[in-house]
Amino acid sequence: MKVVYTSAFVPPELIEACGFEAHRLAPRADPRAGEGALYAAGVCPFVRAWIAQAPRVDGAAAVVAGSECDQMRRGADILARRAPLPVFLLNVPATWQTEAARRYYRDELRRLAAFLEAAGGVFPSGDALAARMAAAERRRARERAAAAEAASRPAAGVPIALVGGPLLQEDAALFGLVAACGGRVAVNGLDGGERTAPRAFDPRAARRNPIEELADAYFDGVPDAFRRPDDGLHAWIGRALARHGARGLIMVRYVWCDTWHAETGRLRDELRVPVLELDLNDEVPLARYATRVQAFLEMLA
């Protein structure tokens, strides 16, 4: 049985330790074809598609949304009213500088575990969670090593960074579009890319108190645009650009996404490399952005 989620602050390790398969859903575009509030003007296309498709995933036993943005919070309300499955909204504090915020997030993960138990899973034992964390850590270590190895090889294309939130399935073709226009994604700062990986788990802390270590690794490790202040995101971008020699940055955001849209101005103020903003829209095919991406990469070449 699957638990469907998308937020980078929902640890898949916890879902698995509760006895479910963690299914991170990248939905297909769902332009304004349906009825009801989700199809009103002003709704983020990702929220619209995710809320509509999450409960329809084959084998889904529950849906877990994150509270990072107003649109997703309100989408989760709609889902909770309609969905035939249990829905959980994980409350992720926007602030990060206080012990109270950290404690709150830890308690939210405990509440999530209790919810998953009620949805037909088990409340995870410390050992079960620690084992999942160790396995995830090994997998991420392998991925990091492979990425480092790939980065050390000479590669064609202008190195750029992609930064932004989650992508609809169709928009994953952006990576190919960048390559086709003579670029190379050297930094993946989108949801699901290296920006949203938690910091490495401390094995001793994970054995001693796995849920706290899990919470801290995500809480401290994932820089995001919704955090207040969002300095962690800008620091991460600065480091990533320098490390990979990215010559430009493409801010990828959906129309009506205030959270990521507002970052562009600051990035333009502060970065030494050019910034292109792509406001993706589920009603506009990705190919329509090709000219702008092409021009941007030509300017960087």
């Binding site: 509270s67 943005c69 107003d70 649109q71 919070r73 409350n91 504090p93 926007a94 602030t95 919704f226 207040r228 202040p229 969002d230 800008h234 996404c257 205030d258 959270t259 849209h261 507002a262 101005g265 600051r266 103020d269 502060e270």
Partner: peptide, 23 residues
């Protein structure tokens, strides 16, 4: 936190311009 995205984003832009904010 549980506020509109508009305000949170606008206030963050303000903070990024150097206005100290107690969040």
């Amino acid at each position: 936190g549980a506020v509109c995205d508009d305000f949170s984003a606008v206030a963050q832009r303000l903070s990024g311009l150097g206005h100290a904010i107690l969040w």
